[in-house]
């Protein structure tokens, strides 16, 4: 399993997350600024999606300390109507954005009146 091993005791921060639905997709957006792309692992199996990451901070000589670093893991259960094989993810401006397409049959359709 290609994830970062996270113990419950390691988890000291939970990134703020947003889940939205549009006509064709579900989108998960997580705020995790300052990550290395290589430190983010997203993994899916069946209808489960897991995001693990490690935020590394330079904490030596801190005069003022509000930022929280460390590992975290977050699981999501995907709705049945999505194509978990076609999940796409990107990391831009400190946001992890995961787009989960809906299956063809569950997409919203416009019905024309005959």
């Amino acid at each position: 399993m290609n994830t970062i091993n996270v113990n419950k005791t390691d988890m000291i921060f939970i990134p703020p997350t947003e889940i939205s639905e549009s006509r064709d997709n579900y989108t998960i957006t997580m705020e995790i600024p300052g990550l290395d792309k290589a430190d983010i692992k997203i993994w899916s199996e069946g209808n489960k999606l897991m995001v693990t990451a490690e935020k590394k901070l330079d904490t030596e000589g801190r005069l003022y300390a509000e930022r929280i670093g460390g590992k975290f893991a977050r699981w999501f259960v995907l709705p049945e109507d999505c194509e978990s094989a076609k999940v796409e993810a990107e990391y831009v401006d400190g946001l992890i954005k995961i787009v989960i397409p809906k299956s063809e049959k569950s997409k919203a359709k416009t019905i024309t009146i005959k």
Partner: peptide, 17 residues
């Protein structure tokens, strides 16, 4: 965060998105 390095101060702020 504000970090004191020998010859400089480094401030970092998390402003995702």
């Amino acid at each position: 965060d504000i970090v004191d390095k020998d010859d400089k101060l480094v401030l970092t702020a998390e402003l995702p998105g």
